[in-house]
Design a protein around this nucleic acid. Structure first.
Lengths: 235, 235
DNA sequence: ACTTACACGTGAAGC
DNA sequence: TGCTTCACGTGTAAG
């Protein structure tokens, strides 16, 4: 029922509405409760309708403003319709994410998602000693590095190499180490147990970081990258 | 005028339409041309209206499908309304692009936008010889490298170093060189002329690449990065 | 004339 | 109840 229709029918004191019935393909009465008590507050109703349509107008403007912002961000998306623009945005986001992941894995850049990875990356053919790689990517917090150091120490591993890289407030740490305790005599089960204990140790750090109140509160930060070998610095 | 309104007025052989006048804040007649010849093709009109509303329905579905795809791509955007979702997407795209640019500049990764950069990066304090850095980022095409080689040769520069990196089908080349011809005696104007001649030479390569029919046709490619020093390989 | 895309006002549903 | 969001059918203009 549009505004014009309402006022027109208001005079008769009744509201009738016909709609297109999609299944039957014909016009039908809109509903059963078409009778209404009218005449008391036409002004109020009109005012409500007016504010409603104005609110809806504002909503559309908000959405379209974001869409045109996206248009500026996406190259050569002028004269694309809304659907095509959104399709293009989907592609861009996917591709950017994929690139970011690739770059991150190869070049050791911290991403925005927290992550822990612990894996065996090499096995000594002679004595069966394993080389492990453990990485943690998270938001920076005070004492993060000393916590990590403590964790590594408590695991009683033979640290081969450690690296840190930062991007904005994100930190990524990678550790290469061998297992001191069972070394070459480790069974597959023992290795799995060791892996999961390392994962657990790192996870508790991640929990601590997650619980830490961020003091950067998501600014439009200008991100800067730095990375270095911290083997000699930290440990 | 909605379908119900139309059919209702059709009986009277006239169409009246009231709309809310935003400036005056009151209801006014919609337009002057309210008289219509009706009774000839009601069926056709209804059919047209129906196909119209169905088309509009399909359009909405298309747009909403893309929006829900974006919802899945953006973390924790469940229960966001459309505007908030789009705002979040804008942020994500901006941040991803910024990160990509940072990473690209520092780690020498080709991005998706074609680019040429030629600049002086150092000047010899004694003889005034300049060290230049020229980079080109573009789509790969056959003979790109030999074209580049030819271009560099034709510029008669003293090539110090060249690097290539690729990401998917994108290629980025960086060249460090000094100017053989005028060397230390170059005036500021001569340097500018030299810079622009290098830019022009690279631009013609970029034009050639742009004109080249892509054979990758934008797949959802799994991008892989490789980069190497090509000084000894290429030149 | 037919299709297509957009803006609009409105009904319905969730707080 | 009032406010907000969404889907809908429609008016309208462009190709």
């Amino acid at each position: 029922m549009n505004l014009g229709e309402f006022c027109e029918n208001e005079a008769k004191g009744v509201v009738q509405s016909l709609v297109l019935d999609r299944e039957k393909g014909e016009l039908v009465k809109a509903s059963g409760r078409v009778e209404k008590k009218i005449g008391i507050s036409e002004g109020k109703t009109i005012a409500a309708l007016k504010s409603h349509s104005e609110a809806e107008r504002r909503r559309r403007q908000r959405i379209n403003a974001h869409l045109s912002t996206l248009r500026n961000l996406v190259p050569s998306s002028d004269k694309m319709d809304k659907a095509a623009l959104l399709a293009e945005v989907v592609c861009q986001v996917k591709q950017l994410k994929e690139t970011a992941t690739d770059v991150s894995e190869r070049f050791f850049i911290p991403l925005d998602s927290d992550e822990i990875k612990v894996e065996i990356i090499a096995e000594n053919a002679i004595d069966g000693t394993c080389l492990y790689r453990a990485s943690i990517c998270c938001e920076y917090m005070p004492h993060l590095l000393s916590d990590l150091k403590e964790t590594i120490n408590s695991l009683h591993v033979n640290l081969v190499k450690s690296e840190i890289s930062t991007l904005g407030s994100r930190v990524k740490n990678v550790f290469l180490f061998t297992n001191l305790i069972d070394g070459g005599r480790a069974t597959i089960e023992a290795r799995e147990i060791f892996l999961s204990s390392v994962r657990q140790a790192f996870s508790s750090i991640l929990d601590k970081v997650s619980a830490f109140p961020e003091y950067s509160a998501y600014p439009n930060k200008r991100q800067r990258i730095s990375c270095f070998d911290s083997s000699s610095l930290l440990f």
